[in-house]
Amino acid sequence: MYPEGLKYAKTHEWLKVEDNEGKVGITYYAQDHLGDITFVELPQVGAELIKGKSFGTVESFKAVSEFYAPVSGKVVQVNKGLRDNPELLNQDPYGQGWILVVEIANPAEMEELLSPGDYEQWVKQQEEVE
């Protein structure tokens, strides 16, 4: 459910680093929690993300959540396919359901992100709080 090789934010986004760029998506837990996703609002290419700040929204038919940037940087690519097929976030959150690619401004920020194991622990804690 939480593939190796990715870094995870406590706000339930994943980051896959390739050179100085990072691909961003939401985790299995996040999409499962939201239920059937019906709409995604994404930033434009060129927008500046700030770590920890909202960069878009995701809607299921009865809930709205925000995406929070796992790292800061400029958006270089967004997944346009999500506009017509937001359900990709449910069906393939680590593959076709990627959200955007960001040019990582400050690699040091990645140190706060979690490993798959730590993230899984974090999710378990969340479920217990409920």
């Binding site: 019906t38 709409f39 809607e59 299921s60 038919f61 009865k62 809930a63 709205v64």
Partner: peptide
Amino acid sequence: QTREQHIR
């Protein structure tokens, strides 16, 4: 309904 007050 995500536009409406009871959700948003």
